[in-house]
Design a binder for these strands. Structure first.
Length: 621
DNA sequence: CGCTTTTGACCCGCGC
DNA sequence: GCGCGGGTCAAAAGCG
Protein backbone atom coordinates (compact mmCIF):
# COMPACT_ATOMS: atom_id res chain seq x y z
CA UNK A 1 0.00 0.00 0.00
CA UNK A 2 1.18 3.42 -0.79
CA UNK A 3 2.32 5.28 2.18
CA UNK A 4 0.56 8.29 3.46
CA UNK A 5 -2.60 9.67 2.08
CA UNK A 6 -5.30 9.24 4.57
CA UNK A 7 -7.58 7.13 2.51
CA UNK A 8 -5.81 3.90 2.19
CA UNK A 9 -8.20 1.82 4.10
CA UNK A 10 -7.85 -1.54 2.52
CA UNK A 11 -6.41 -3.05 5.60
CA UNK A 12 -8.19 -1.06 8.17
CA UNK A 13 -11.05 -3.07 9.57
CA UNK A 14 -11.40 -0.64 12.39
CA UNK A 15 -12.54 1.96 10.05
CA UNK A 16 -10.38 4.95 10.03
CA UNK A 17 -11.67 8.26 11.00
CA UNK A 18 -12.75 9.95 7.85
CA UNK A 19 -14.08 13.26 8.83
CA UNK A 20 -15.04 14.30 5.42
CA UNK A 21 -16.06 10.99 4.08
CA UNK A 22 -19.12 9.81 5.85
CA UNK A 23 -19.55 6.16 6.05
CA UNK A 24 -22.47 4.94 4.12
CA UNK A 25 -24.49 1.95 4.96
CA UNK A 26 -25.36 -0.45 2.29
CA UNK A 27 -27.14 -3.68 1.98
CA UNK A 28 -25.57 -6.98 2.64
CA UNK A 29 -24.38 -8.90 -0.28
CA UNK A 30 -23.03 -11.70 1.78
CA UNK A 31 -23.91 -13.62 4.84
CA UNK A 32 -21.14 -12.48 7.02
CA UNK A 33 -23.00 -9.74 8.69
CA UNK A 34 -19.98 -8.42 10.42
CA UNK A 35 -17.92 -7.82 7.39
CA UNK A 36 -16.71 -4.35 6.85
CA UNK A 37 -16.54 -3.43 3.27
CA UNK A 38 -13.76 -1.16 2.40
CA UNK A 39 -13.73 -1.58 -1.27
CA UNK A 40 -14.55 1.88 -2.37
CA UNK A 41 -11.86 4.19 -3.38
CA UNK A 42 -13.59 7.37 -2.39
CA UNK A 43 -12.80 6.99 1.23
CA UNK A 44 -16.26 5.97 2.11
CA UNK A 45 -16.57 2.99 4.28
CA UNK A 46 -19.34 0.60 3.84
CA UNK A 47 -20.61 -1.51 6.60
CA UNK A 48 -22.98 -4.27 6.66
CA UNK A 49 -25.70 -3.44 9.00
CA UNK A 50 -28.96 -5.10 8.34
CA UNK A 51 -28.64 -8.64 9.60
CA UNK A 52 -26.76 -7.60 12.60
CA UNK A 53 -29.08 -4.82 13.34
CA UNK A 54 -32.13 -6.92 12.92
CA UNK A 55 -30.69 -9.62 15.03
CA UNK A 56 -29.88 -7.21 17.72
CA UNK A 57 -33.23 -5.62 17.66
CA UNK A 58 -35.04 -8.85 17.80
CA UNK A 59 -32.77 -10.05 20.51
CA UNK A 60 -33.67 -7.10 22.59
CA UNK A 61 -37.30 -7.79 22.30
CA UNK A 62 -39.14 -10.04 24.49
CA UNK A 63 -39.53 -13.19 22.48
CA UNK A 64 -43.13 -13.64 23.39
CA UNK A 65 -44.34 -10.12 23.29
CA UNK A 66 -44.88 -7.64 20.62
CA UNK A 67 -43.85 -4.05 21.00
CA UNK A 68 -47.38 -3.19 21.82
CA UNK A 69 -47.39 -5.78 24.48
CA UNK A 70 -44.32 -4.31 25.86
CA UNK A 71 -45.94 -1.01 25.74
CA UNK A 72 -48.77 -2.11 27.87
CA UNK A 73 -46.48 -3.11 30.61
CA UNK A 74 -45.71 -0.47 33.11
CA UNK A 75 -43.39 -2.61 35.11
CA UNK A 76 -40.69 -2.52 32.52
CA UNK A 77 -39.39 0.35 30.52
CA UNK A 78 -41.06 -0.29 27.27
CA UNK A 79 -40.34 2.14 24.56
CA UNK A 80 -42.78 2.26 21.80
CA UNK A 81 -40.55 3.57 19.17
CA UNK A 82 -41.14 4.69 15.71
CA UNK A 83 -40.16 1.90 13.48
CA UNK A 84 -40.97 3.71 10.34
CA UNK A 85 -37.79 5.65 10.09
CA UNK A 86 -35.58 3.00 8.71
CA UNK A 87 -35.61 4.70 5.42
CA UNK A 88 -34.01 7.63 7.05
CA UNK A 89 -31.13 5.71 8.29
CA UNK A 90 -28.45 8.26 8.84
CA UNK A 91 -25.00 8.08 7.55
CA UNK A 92 -22.65 6.93 10.13
CA UNK A 93 -19.26 8.21 10.75
CA UNK A 94 -18.92 7.82 14.42
CA UNK A 95 -21.06 6.38 17.04
CA UNK A 96 -22.36 9.34 18.90
CA UNK A 97 -22.34 8.41 22.52
CA UNK A 98 -22.96 11.84 23.84
CA UNK A 99 -24.77 13.72 21.22
CA UNK A 100 -24.76 17.03 22.91
CA UNK A 101 -24.91 19.43 20.12
CA UNK A 102 -23.14 22.62 19.84
CA UNK A 103 -24.44 25.83 18.58
CA UNK A 104 -23.10 24.96 15.23
CA UNK A 105 -25.27 21.98 15.20
CA UNK A 106 -28.21 24.15 15.88
CA UNK A 107 -27.24 26.41 13.09
CA UNK A 108 -27.06 23.43 10.88
CA UNK A 109 -30.49 22.48 11.84
CA UNK A 110 -29.52 19.31 13.45
CA UNK A 111 -32.47 17.79 15.07
CA UNK A 112 -31.34 15.96 18.06
CA UNK A 113 -32.87 15.38 21.37
CA UNK A 114 -29.82 16.73 23.05
CA UNK A 115 -30.03 19.91 21.14
CA UNK A 116 -32.67 21.13 23.47
CA UNK A 117 -29.98 22.04 25.87
CA UNK A 118 -26.81 22.71 24.07
CA UNK A 119 -24.86 24.20 26.86
CA UNK A 120 -25.91 21.74 29.43
CA UNK A 121 -24.00 18.58 29.92
CA UNK A 122 -25.74 15.32 29.91
CA UNK A 123 -27.36 14.93 33.19
CA UNK A 124 -30.61 13.98 34.64
CA UNK A 125 -31.42 17.59 34.83
CA UNK A 126 -30.63 17.85 31.21
CA UNK A 127 -32.71 14.88 30.43
CA UNK A 128 -35.60 16.16 32.39
CA UNK A 129 -35.18 19.46 30.78
CA UNK A 130 -35.24 17.82 27.47
CA UNK A 131 -38.38 16.18 28.53
CA UNK A 132 -40.12 19.45 28.26
CA UNK A 133 -39.27 19.63 24.66
CA UNK A 134 -39.98 16.08 23.91
CA UNK A 135 -43.47 16.27 22.66
CA UNK A 136 -42.33 14.56 19.57
CA UNK A 137 -44.32 12.14 17.54
CA UNK A 138 -42.49 9.23 18.99
CA UNK A 139 -43.19 10.29 22.48
CA UNK A 140 -46.75 11.02 21.69
CA UNK A 141 -46.94 7.67 20.13
CA UNK A 142 -45.78 6.17 23.33
CA UNK A 143 -48.41 7.97 25.23
CA UNK A 144 -51.04 7.38 22.67
CA UNK A 145 -50.43 3.73 22.62
CA UNK A 146 -50.46 3.55 26.33
CA UNK A 147 -53.71 5.37 26.46
CA UNK A 148 -55.19 3.26 23.81
CA UNK A 149 -54.28 0.11 25.52
CA UNK A 150 -55.66 1.30 28.73
CA UNK A 151 -58.83 2.43 27.20
CA UNK A 152 -59.23 -0.38 24.80
CA UNK A 153 -59.62 -2.79 27.60
CA UNK A 154 -62.66 -1.03 28.80
CA UNK A 155 -64.06 0.35 25.65
CA UNK A 156 -63.57 -2.74 23.66
CA UNK A 157 -66.42 -4.50 25.36
CA UNK A 158 -68.51 -1.41 25.15
CA UNK A 159 -67.83 -1.20 21.54
CA UNK A 160 -69.00 -4.72 21.06
CA UNK A 161 -72.34 -3.92 22.53
CA UNK A 162 -73.16 -0.80 20.64
CA UNK A 163 -74.95 -0.74 17.43
CA UNK A 164 -72.99 -0.43 14.24
CA UNK A 165 -74.78 2.74 13.38
CA UNK A 166 -73.54 4.39 16.48
CA UNK A 167 -70.07 3.02 16.22
CA UNK A 168 -68.81 6.04 14.39
CA UNK A 169 -70.05 8.42 17.02
CA UNK A 170 -68.79 6.13 19.68
CA UNK A 171 -65.37 6.09 18.18
CA UNK A 172 -65.33 9.81 17.98
CA UNK A 173 -66.31 10.10 21.56
CA UNK A 174 -63.74 7.59 22.50
CA UNK A 175 -61.14 9.44 20.56
CA UNK A 176 -62.06 12.62 22.32
CA UNK A 177 -61.93 10.97 25.66
CA UNK A 178 -58.61 9.52 24.79
CA UNK A 179 -57.41 12.91 23.81
CA UNK A 180 -58.54 14.29 27.10
CA UNK A 181 -56.85 11.49 28.92
CA UNK A 182 -53.70 12.03 27.00
CA UNK A 183 -53.69 15.71 27.62
CA UNK A 184 -54.24 15.12 31.27
CA UNK A 185 -51.45 12.64 31.26
CA UNK A 186 -49.21 15.09 29.50
CA UNK A 187 -49.96 17.75 32.02
CA UNK A 188 -49.39 15.34 34.82
CA UNK A 189 -46.04 14.37 33.40
CA UNK A 190 -45.10 17.97 32.98
CA UNK A 191 -45.92 18.64 36.58
CA UNK A 192 -43.97 15.60 37.61
CA UNK A 193 -41.11 16.71 35.47
CA UNK A 194 -41.16 20.09 37.05
CA UNK A 195 -41.24 18.60 40.46
CA UNK A 196 -38.28 16.39 39.74
CA UNK A 197 -36.33 19.29 38.42
CA UNK A 198 -37.07 21.28 41.49
CA UNK A 199 -35.92 18.38 43.57
CA UNK A 200 -32.74 18.21 41.63
CA UNK A 201 -32.12 21.87 42.06
CA UNK A 202 -32.64 21.60 45.74
CA UNK A 203 -30.35 18.67 46.07
CA UNK A 204 -27.80 20.49 44.04
CA UNK A 205 -27.99 23.44 46.29
CA UNK A 206 -27.56 21.24 49.29
CA UNK A 207 -24.69 19.49 47.72
CA UNK A 208 -22.90 22.65 46.86
CA UNK A 209 -23.32 23.96 50.33
CA UNK A 210 -22.06 20.72 51.76
CA UNK A 211 -19.16 20.67 49.41
CA UNK A 212 -18.15 24.16 50.30
CA UNK A 213 -18.42 23.29 53.95
CA UNK A 214 -16.31 20.22 53.58
CA UNK A 215 -13.71 22.03 51.56
CA UNK A 216 -13.42 24.71 54.18
CA UNK A 217 -13.09 22.11 56.88
CA UNK A 218 -10.46 20.33 54.91
CA UNK A 219 -8.51 23.48 54.44
CA UNK A 220 -8.65 24.30 58.09
CA UNK A 221 -7.57 20.86 59.03
CA UNK A 222 -4.85 20.97 56.48
CA UNK A 223 -3.46 24.11 57.96
CA UNK A 224 -3.60 22.66 61.42
CA UNK A 225 -1.85 19.53 60.31
CA UNK A 226 0.79 21.53 58.60
CA UNK A 227 1.59 23.30 61.79
CA UNK A 228 1.63 20.11 63.77
CA UNK A 229 3.75 18.25 61.32
CA UNK A 230 6.45 20.82 61.49
CA UNK A 231 7.01 19.84 65.08
CA UNK A 232 6.16 16.23 65.51
CA UNK A 233 5.51 15.22 61.95
CA UNK A 234 2.94 12.80 62.96
CA UNK A 235 -0.75 12.77 62.83
CA UNK A 236 -2.96 10.06 64.05
CA UNK A 237 -6.36 9.45 62.72
CA UNK A 238 -7.99 9.89 66.04
CA UNK A 239 -7.03 13.49 65.84
CA UNK A 240 -8.72 13.72 62.51
CA UNK A 241 -11.75 12.11 63.89
CA UNK A 242 -11.62 14.56 66.67
CA UNK A 243 -11.87 17.31 64.18
CA UNK A 244 -14.98 15.72 62.91
CA UNK A 245 -13.49 15.03 59.53
CA UNK A 246 -13.04 11.51 58.46
CA UNK A 247 -10.53 10.78 55.81
CA UNK A 248 -11.33 7.27 54.85
CA UNK A 249 -9.20 5.25 52.60
CA UNK A 250 -11.46 5.92 49.75
CA UNK A 251 -10.58 9.53 49.98
CA UNK A 252 -6.96 8.78 49.83
CA UNK A 253 -7.23 6.61 46.86
CA UNK A 254 -9.50 8.84 44.95
CA UNK A 255 -7.43 11.81 45.67
CA UNK A 256 -4.46 10.07 44.30
CA UNK A 257 -6.42 8.86 41.43
CA UNK A 258 -7.40 12.33 40.54
CA UNK A 259 -3.83 13.07 39.87
CA UNK A 260 -4.00 11.10 36.78
CA UNK A 261 -4.52 14.39 35.23
CA UNK A 262 -1.00 15.18 34.31
CA UNK A 263 -1.78 18.78 34.37
CA UNK A 264 -2.71 18.52 37.95
CA UNK A 265 -0.27 20.73 39.78
CA UNK A 266 -0.20 18.46 42.76
CA UNK A 267 3.40 17.66 42.04
CA UNK A 268 4.46 21.14 41.45
CA UNK A 269 5.88 23.59 43.82
CA UNK A 270 4.41 24.43 47.14
CA UNK A 271 2.95 27.50 45.61
CA UNK A 272 1.18 25.44 43.10
CA UNK A 273 0.03 23.16 45.79
CA UNK A 274 -1.33 25.92 47.85
CA UNK A 275 -3.22 27.06 44.84
CA UNK A 276 -4.40 23.65 44.24
CA UNK A 277 -5.41 23.28 47.79
CA UNK A 278 -8.45 25.36 47.37
CA UNK A 279 -9.70 23.16 44.65
CA UNK A 280 -8.49 19.81 45.64
CA UNK A 281 -7.58 19.84 49.25
CA UNK A 282 -8.03 16.18 49.66
CA UNK A 283 -5.11 15.36 47.53
CA UNK A 284 -2.83 17.35 49.66
CA UNK A 285 -4.48 16.05 52.70
CA UNK A 286 -3.86 12.59 51.57
CA UNK A 287 -0.37 13.25 50.47
CA UNK A 288 0.60 14.86 53.70
CA UNK A 289 -1.15 12.25 55.68
CA UNK A 290 0.50 9.46 53.87
CA UNK A 291 3.78 11.11 54.25
CA UNK A 292 3.34 11.54 57.91
CA UNK A 293 1.96 8.15 58.50
CA UNK A 294 4.64 6.30 56.67
CA UNK A 295 7.38 8.77 57.36
CA UNK A 296 8.45 8.49 53.83
CA UNK A 297 10.52 11.53 53.29
CA UNK A 298 11.89 10.60 49.98
CA UNK A 299 11.09 12.95 47.24
CA UNK A 300 10.82 11.21 44.00
CA UNK A 301 9.11 12.74 41.09
CA UNK A 302 11.07 10.78 38.62
CA UNK A 303 8.34 8.33 38.08
CA UNK A 304 5.91 11.09 37.59
CA UNK A 305 8.22 12.84 35.24
CA UNK A 306 8.50 9.72 33.27
CA UNK A 307 4.80 9.35 33.16
CA UNK A 308 4.40 12.83 31.91
CA UNK A 309 7.08 12.31 29.38
CA UNK A 310 5.12 9.45 28.12
CA UNK A 311 1.90 11.33 28.17
CA UNK A 312 2.54 14.78 27.03
CA UNK A 313 5.71 16.54 26.39
CA UNK A 314 4.18 19.92 26.29
CA UNK A 315 2.97 19.42 29.78
CA UNK A 316 6.31 18.21 30.82
CA UNK A 317 7.89 21.42 29.75
CA UNK A 318 5.30 23.42 31.51
CA UNK A 319 5.54 21.54 34.72
CA UNK A 320 9.14 20.77 34.89
CA UNK A 321 10.22 23.93 36.66
CA UNK A 322 7.65 23.57 39.32
CA UNK A 323 8.51 19.96 39.71
CA UNK A 324 12.05 20.85 40.17
CA UNK A 325 10.99 23.18 42.86
CA UNK A 326 9.04 20.42 44.41
CA UNK A 327 11.97 18.10 44.27
CA UNK A 328 14.09 20.56 46.13
CA UNK A 329 11.36 21.76 48.33
CA UNK A 330 12.04 22.05 51.98
CA UNK A 331 8.46 21.39 52.81
CA UNK A 332 8.36 17.64 52.90
CA UNK A 333 4.75 17.44 53.73
CA UNK A 334 3.85 18.43 50.21
CA UNK A 335 6.24 16.08 48.57
CA UNK A 336 4.56 13.09 47.16
CA UNK A 337 5.80 9.94 48.77
CA UNK A 338 6.91 7.01 46.78
CA UNK A 339 3.64 5.17 47.07
CA UNK A 340 1.99 8.22 45.67
CA UNK A 341 4.16 7.87 42.62
CA UNK A 342 3.16 4.30 42.40
CA UNK A 343 -0.39 5.37 42.59
CA UNK A 344 0.28 7.86 39.87
CA UNK A 345 1.68 5.18 37.69
CA UNK A 346 -1.22 2.97 38.46
CA UNK A 347 -3.67 5.67 37.74
CA UNK A 348 -2.01 6.52 34.52
CA UNK A 349 -2.39 2.96 33.49
CA UNK A 350 -5.98 2.89 34.50
CA UNK A 351 -8.18 2.55 31.53
CA UNK A 352 -11.78 2.73 30.80
CA UNK A 353 -12.91 0.55 28.02
CA UNK A 354 -16.22 1.08 26.36
CA UNK A 355 -17.67 -1.74 24.42
CA UNK A 356 -20.45 -0.72 22.14
CA UNK A 357 -22.13 -2.19 19.20
CA UNK A 358 -21.43 0.25 16.49
CA UNK A 359 -20.93 0.17 12.81
CA UNK A 360 -19.24 3.48 12.97
CA UNK A 361 -15.48 3.46 12.87
CA UNK A 362 -15.25 5.49 16.00
CA UNK A 363 -17.55 6.62 18.69
CA UNK A 364 -18.30 10.25 19.09
CA UNK A 365 -17.20 11.42 22.45
CA UNK A 366 -17.04 15.08 21.74
CA UNK A 367 -13.30 15.31 21.63
CA UNK A 368 -11.06 15.74 18.68
CA UNK A 369 -8.65 12.95 18.08
CA UNK A 370 -5.71 12.46 15.89
CA UNK A 371 -4.59 9.08 14.88
CA UNK A 372 -0.98 8.51 15.59
CA UNK A 373 -0.58 4.86 15.10
CA UNK A 374 -2.06 1.59 14.18
CA UNK A 375 -0.89 -1.83 15.09
CA UNK A 376 -1.97 -5.32 14.69
CA UNK A 377 -2.63 -6.67 18.10
CA UNK A 378 -2.09 -10.24 18.90
CA UNK A 379 -5.17 -12.34 18.96
CA UNK A 380 -7.26 -9.94 17.01
CA UNK A 381 -7.36 -9.78 13.25
CA UNK A 382 -8.55 -6.24 13.47
CA UNK A 383 -5.88 -3.62 13.88
CA UNK A 384 -5.82 -1.39 16.87
CA UNK A 385 -5.79 2.29 16.18
CA UNK A 386 -4.21 4.77 18.52
CA UNK A 387 -5.58 8.23 18.92
CA UNK A 388 -4.57 11.15 21.02
CA UNK A 389 -6.67 14.08 21.99
CA UNK A 390 -5.89 17.14 19.96
CA UNK A 391 -8.18 19.57 21.65
CA UNK A 392 -5.27 20.96 23.57
CA UNK A 393 -1.56 20.75 23.12
CA UNK A 394 -0.16 18.14 25.39
CA UNK A 395 -3.43 16.64 26.41
CA UNK A 396 -2.45 13.28 27.78
CA UNK A 397 -5.64 11.53 26.91
CA UNK A 398 -5.30 8.72 24.46
CA UNK A 399 -7.62 6.18 23.23
CA UNK A 400 -7.43 2.95 21.42
CA UNK A 401 -10.06 1.79 19.05
CA UNK A 402 -10.36 -1.78 18.05
CA UNK A 403 -13.04 -4.06 16.94
CA UNK A 404 -13.84 -7.07 18.98
CA UNK A 405 -12.31 -10.17 17.54
CA UNK A 406 -15.31 -12.28 18.39
CA UNK A 407 -17.92 -9.87 17.25
CA UNK A 408 -16.66 -7.24 14.92
CA UNK A 409 -19.79 -5.29 15.24
CA UNK A 410 -18.58 -4.39 18.69
CA UNK A 411 -16.32 -1.45 18.87
CA UNK A 412 -13.98 -1.33 21.81
CA UNK A 413 -12.77 2.09 22.73
CA UNK A 414 -10.29 2.33 25.52
CA UNK A 415 -9.60 5.66 27.13
CA UNK A 416 -6.56 6.47 29.15
CA UNK A 417 -5.79 9.62 31.06
CA UNK A 418 -7.67 12.73 31.92
CA UNK A 419 -8.07 15.78 29.82
CA UNK A 420 -6.08 18.80 30.85
CA UNK A 421 -8.26 21.29 29.09
CA UNK A 422 -11.82 22.47 29.12
CA UNK A 423 -14.11 20.17 27.36
CA UNK A 424 -16.98 20.96 25.09
CA UNK A 425 -20.33 19.93 26.43
CA UNK A 426 -20.45 17.04 24.06
CA UNK A 427 -17.27 15.64 25.50
CA UNK A 428 -18.00 16.11 29.11
CA UNK A 429 -20.10 13.08 29.61
CA UNK A 430 -17.59 10.68 28.25
CA UNK A 431 -14.78 12.38 30.06
CA UNK A 432 -16.73 12.17 33.23
CA UNK A 433 -17.51 8.60 32.62
CA UNK A 434 -14.00 7.57 31.93
CA UNK A 435 -12.37 9.61 34.61
CA UNK A 436 -14.89 8.64 37.20
CA UNK A 437 -14.70 5.03 36.25
CA UNK A 438 -10.95 5.09 36.38
CA UNK A 439 -11.05 6.89 39.65
CA UNK A 440 -13.43 4.47 41.11
CA UNK A 441 -11.48 1.57 39.82
CA UNK A 442 -8.28 2.87 41.22
CA UNK A 443 -9.90 3.79 44.42
CA UNK A 444 -9.74 0.11 45.05
CA UNK A 445 -6.62 -0.65 43.15
CA UNK A 446 -4.32 -0.21 46.06
CA UNK A 447 -5.13 -3.59 47.30
CA UNK A 448 -6.66 -6.54 45.70
CA UNK A 449 -9.27 -6.78 48.36
CA UNK A 450 -10.26 -3.22 47.83
CA UNK A 451 -10.27 -3.77 44.17
CA UNK A 452 -12.77 -6.47 44.48
CA UNK A 453 -14.75 -4.52 46.93
CA UNK A 454 -14.83 -1.50 44.77
CA UNK A 455 -15.58 -3.48 41.74
CA UNK A 456 -18.62 -4.73 43.44
CA UNK A 457 -19.26 -1.33 44.79
CA UNK A 458 -19.17 0.14 41.38
CA UNK A 459 -21.62 -2.23 39.93
CA UNK A 460 -23.68 -2.51 43.00
CA UNK A 461 -24.24 1.16 43.25
CA UNK A 462 -24.36 2.01 39.66
CA UNK A 463 -26.14 -1.01 38.42
CA UNK A 464 -27.80 -2.38 41.43
CA UNK A 465 -29.02 -5.47 39.70
CA UNK A 466 -25.99 -6.20 37.63
CA UNK A 467 -23.41 -7.04 40.18
CA UNK A 468 -23.27 -10.50 38.78
CA UNK A 469 -21.90 -9.01 35.60
CA UNK A 470 -18.91 -7.55 37.27
CA UNK A 471 -15.89 -9.67 36.83
CA UNK A 472 -12.27 -9.26 37.66
CA UNK A 473 -10.36 -9.92 34.55
CA UNK A 474 -6.85 -11.21 34.79
CA UNK A 475 -6.16 -10.70 31.16
CA UNK A 476 -6.04 -6.96 31.13
CA UNK A 477 -2.54 -5.59 31.43
CA UNK A 478 -3.81 -2.52 33.21
CA UNK A 479 -6.56 -1.87 35.66
CA UNK A 480 -9.47 -1.50 33.38
CA UNK A 481 -13.06 -0.64 33.79
CA UNK A 482 -15.09 -2.05 31.00
CA UNK A 483 -18.38 -0.47 30.27
CA UNK A 484 -20.14 -3.06 28.26
CA UNK A 485 -22.95 -1.49 26.36
CA UNK A 486 -23.45 -4.38 24.05
CA UNK A 487 -25.16 -7.05 25.99
CA UNK A 488 -28.80 -7.77 25.71
CA UNK A 489 -31.00 -7.70 28.71
CA UNK A 490 -31.48 -10.96 30.40
CA UNK A 491 -34.93 -11.17 31.89
CA UNK A 492 -33.73 -13.65 34.42
CA UNK A 493 -30.97 -11.41 35.40
CA UNK A 494 -33.13 -8.35 35.64
CA UNK A 495 -36.34 -9.37 37.21
CA UNK A 496 -37.27 -5.89 38.30
CA UNK A 497 -36.54 -3.45 35.54
CA UNK A 498 -38.12 -0.42 37.17
CA UNK A 499 -35.81 -0.68 40.12
CA UNK A 500 -32.63 -1.00 38.27
CA UNK A 501 -30.47 1.39 36.45
CA UNK A 502 -29.64 -1.07 33.83
CA UNK A 503 -32.18 -0.33 31.25
CA UNK A 504 -33.07 -2.59 28.41
CA UNK A 505 -34.41 -1.08 25.29
CA UNK A 506 -36.56 -3.69 23.70
CA UNK A 507 -37.24 -3.24 20.12
CA UNK A 508 -35.23 -0.15 19.64
CA UNK A 509 -34.32 -0.03 16.02
CA UNK A 510 -30.97 0.95 14.83
CA UNK A 511 -31.82 4.47 13.98
CA UNK A 512 -33.49 5.05 17.25
CA UNK A 513 -30.79 3.34 19.07
CA UNK A 514 -28.74 6.08 17.68
CA UNK A 515 -30.26 8.40 20.12
CA UNK A 516 -31.45 6.08 22.77
CA UNK A 517 -28.21 4.26 23.01
CA UNK A 518 -26.49 7.53 23.14
CA UNK A 519 -28.42 8.27 26.20
CA UNK A 520 -27.26 5.25 27.97
CA UNK A 521 -23.69 6.20 28.42
CA UNK A 522 -24.90 9.65 29.01
CA UNK A 523 -26.96 8.63 31.91
CA UNK A 524 -24.60 5.91 32.79
CA UNK A 525 -21.68 8.21 32.73
CA UNK A 526 -23.52 10.79 34.63
CA UNK A 527 -24.43 8.33 37.27
CA UNK A 528 -20.94 7.02 37.39
CA UNK A 529 -19.52 10.44 37.61
CA UNK A 530 -21.95 11.45 40.20
CA UNK A 531 -21.21 8.35 42.12
CA UNK A 532 -17.65 9.28 42.07
CA UNK A 533 -18.06 12.77 43.22
CA UNK A 534 -20.71 12.00 45.69
CA UNK A 535 -23.61 14.03 44.70
CA UNK A 536 -25.14 11.97 42.02
CA UNK A 537 -27.42 14.90 42.02
CA UNK A 538 -25.44 17.92 41.20
CA UNK A 539 -26.91 18.07 37.83
CA UNK A 540 -27.51 21.72 37.68
CA UNK A 541 -23.99 22.39 38.67
CA UNK A 542 -22.92 20.10 35.97
CA UNK A 543 -25.10 22.03 33.69
CA UNK A 544 -22.64 24.81 33.75
CA UNK A 545 -20.18 24.08 30.99
CA UNK A 546 -17.51 26.21 32.48
CA UNK A 547 -17.75 24.43 35.74
CA UNK A 548 -17.74 21.21 33.97
CA UNK A 549 -14.70 22.17 32.13
CA UNK A 550 -13.04 23.01 35.32
CA UNK A 551 -14.15 19.80 36.79
CA UNK A 552 -12.76 17.85 33.99
CA UNK A 553 -9.62 19.79 34.17
CA UNK A 554 -9.32 19.56 37.86
CA UNK A 555 -11.39 16.87 39.39
CA UNK A 556 -13.44 18.15 42.26
CA UNK A 557 -12.82 17.13 45.79
CA UNK A 558 -13.76 13.56 46.02
CA UNK A 559 -16.55 13.73 48.40
CA UNK A 560 -17.84 10.80 46.53
CA UNK A 561 -17.22 7.91 48.70
CA UNK A 562 -17.92 9.46 52.00
CA UNK A 563 -21.50 9.34 51.09
CA UNK A 564 -21.28 6.67 48.50
CA UNK A 565 -23.61 4.56 50.48
CA UNK A 566 -26.14 7.33 50.43
CA UNK A 567 -25.65 7.76 46.77
CA UNK A 568 -26.03 4.09 46.25
CA UNK A 569 -29.20 4.23 48.19
CA UNK A 570 -30.40 7.04 46.01
CA UNK A 571 -29.46 5.19 42.91
CA UNK A 572 -31.14 2.10 44.17
CA UNK A 573 -34.16 4.00 45.27
CA UNK A 574 -37.03 2.91 43.12
CA UNK A 575 -38.40 6.40 43.03
CA UNK A 576 -35.14 7.84 41.90
CA UNK A 577 -34.69 5.14 39.37
CA UNK A 578 -38.24 5.53 38.28
CA UNK A 579 -37.61 9.18 37.75
CA UNK A 580 -34.63 8.33 35.67
CA UNK A 581 -36.63 5.79 33.80
CA UNK A 582 -39.30 8.36 33.19
CA UNK A 583 -36.77 10.77 31.89
CA UNK A 584 -35.26 8.14 29.70
CA UNK A 585 -38.64 7.12 28.52
CA UNK A 586 -39.43 10.61 27.52
CA UNK A 587 -36.16 10.97 25.75
CA UNK A 588 -36.46 7.70 23.98
CA UNK A 589 -39.93 8.52 22.98
CA UNK A 590 -38.95 11.94 21.91
CA UNK A 591 -35.84 10.96 20.14
CA UNK A 592 -35.79 11.65 16.52
CA UNK A 593 -33.77 9.92 13.97
CA UNK A 594 -31.14 12.37 13.11
CA UNK A 595 -28.45 13.02 10.69
CA UNK A 596 -26.49 14.99 13.09
CA UNK A 597 -23.00 16.08 12.43
CA UNK A 598 -21.09 17.34 15.37
CA UNK A 599 -18.56 20.03 15.25
CA UNK A 600 -15.71 17.65 15.24
CA UNK A 601 -16.84 16.08 12.06
CA UNK A 602 -18.57 13.32 13.80
CA UNK A 603 -21.66 12.11 12.17
CA UNK A 604 -24.50 10.06 13.25
CA UNK A 605 -23.98 7.05 15.29
CA UNK A 606 -25.81 3.90 15.46
CA UNK A 607 -25.72 1.51 18.25
CA UNK A 608 -27.98 -1.11 19.55
CA UNK A 609 -27.02 -0.63 23.07
CA UNK A 610 -29.42 -2.43 25.20
CA UNK A 611 -27.95 -2.03 28.57
CA UNK A 612 -24.82 -1.16 30.33
CA UNK A 613 -22.62 -3.55 32.12
CA UNK A 614 -19.66 -2.79 34.15
CA UNK A 615 -16.69 -5.00 34.24
CA UNK A 616 -13.71 -4.16 36.25
CA UNK A 617 -10.47 -5.79 35.61
CA UNK A 618 -7.95 -4.87 38.14
CA UNK A 619 -4.75 -6.47 37.25
CA UNK A 620 -2.09 -4.27 38.58
CA UNK A 621 1.36 -5.13 37.59
C1' DC B 1 0.09 25.20 2.97
C1' DG B 2 -1.48 23.12 6.96
C1' DC B 3 -3.56 19.23 8.77
C1' DT B 4 -4.17 14.47 8.85
C1' DT B 5 -3.30 9.62 8.04
C1' DT B 6 -0.32 5.94 7.01
C1' DT B 7 3.17 2.84 8.25
C1' DG B 8 7.78 1.17 9.03
C1' DA B 9 11.03 1.91 12.54
C1' DC B 10 12.04 2.39 17.08
C1' DC B 11 11.65 2.00 22.13
C1' DC B 12 10.48 -0.37 26.16
C1' DG B 13 8.86 -3.91 29.26
C1' DC B 14 8.37 -8.60 30.02
C1' DG B 15 9.08 -13.55 29.85
C1' DC B 16 12.05 -17.27 28.80
C1' DG C 1 20.60 -11.88 25.83
C1' DC C 2 16.92 -12.60 22.84
C1' DG C 3 12.39 -12.53 21.06
C1' DC C 4 7.81 -10.89 21.39
C1' DG C 5 4.27 -7.64 21.82
C1' DG C 6 2.48 -3.14 22.92
C1' DG C 7 3.00 1.55 22.26
C1' DT C 8 4.98 5.63 20.05
C1' DC C 9 7.51 8.36 16.70
C1' DA C 10 8.15 10.62 12.54
C1' DA C 11 8.83 10.88 7.57
C1' DA C 12 6.06 10.61 3.59
C1' DA C 13 2.18 11.74 1.20
C1' DG C 14 -2.85 12.88 0.37
C1' DC C 15 -6.56 16.08 0.99
C1' DG C 16 -9.04 20.44 1.35
Amino acid sequence: MARGGGLSIDSDPIGSFFPHNPVVLNSFPEDDNNTIINNNSSGQQKWKLGPNMDATVSRNRSPSSSPNNNNTSTSTIPFQVNLSSDNKRPHIDEMDFFPNKTDDDHKNGINNFASASTSAPPSLDHLLHTHDHSSTPAMLELKVNTGLNLLTTNTGSDHAMVDDETSTNSEEKRAKSEMVVLQAELERMKVENHRLRNMLDQVNTNYNALQMHLVSIMQEQKEEEGEQQVFDGKLDEEKQSGNGVLVPRQFMDLGLASNVDTNEPSHSSSVGRSQDLSKSPINNEVASKEFDTKKNGSVSDEGFDQEKKEFGRGIEREDSPSEGAAATSNVPKFSPPRNVDQAEATMRKARVSVRARSEAPMITDGCQWRKYGQKMAKGNPCPRAYYRCTMAAGCPVRKQVQRCADDRSILITTYEGNHNHPLPPAAIAMAQTTSAAARMLLSGSMSSADGLMNGNFLTRTLLPCSSSMATISASAPFPTVTLDLTQSPNPLQFPKPPNQFQIPFPGVPQNFANSSASLLPQIFGQALYNQSKFSGLQMSQDADPSQLSNQSQRPPPHLADTVSAATAAIAADPNFTAALAAAITSIIGGAQPNNNTSTNNNATTSSNTSNANVTTSNNNK
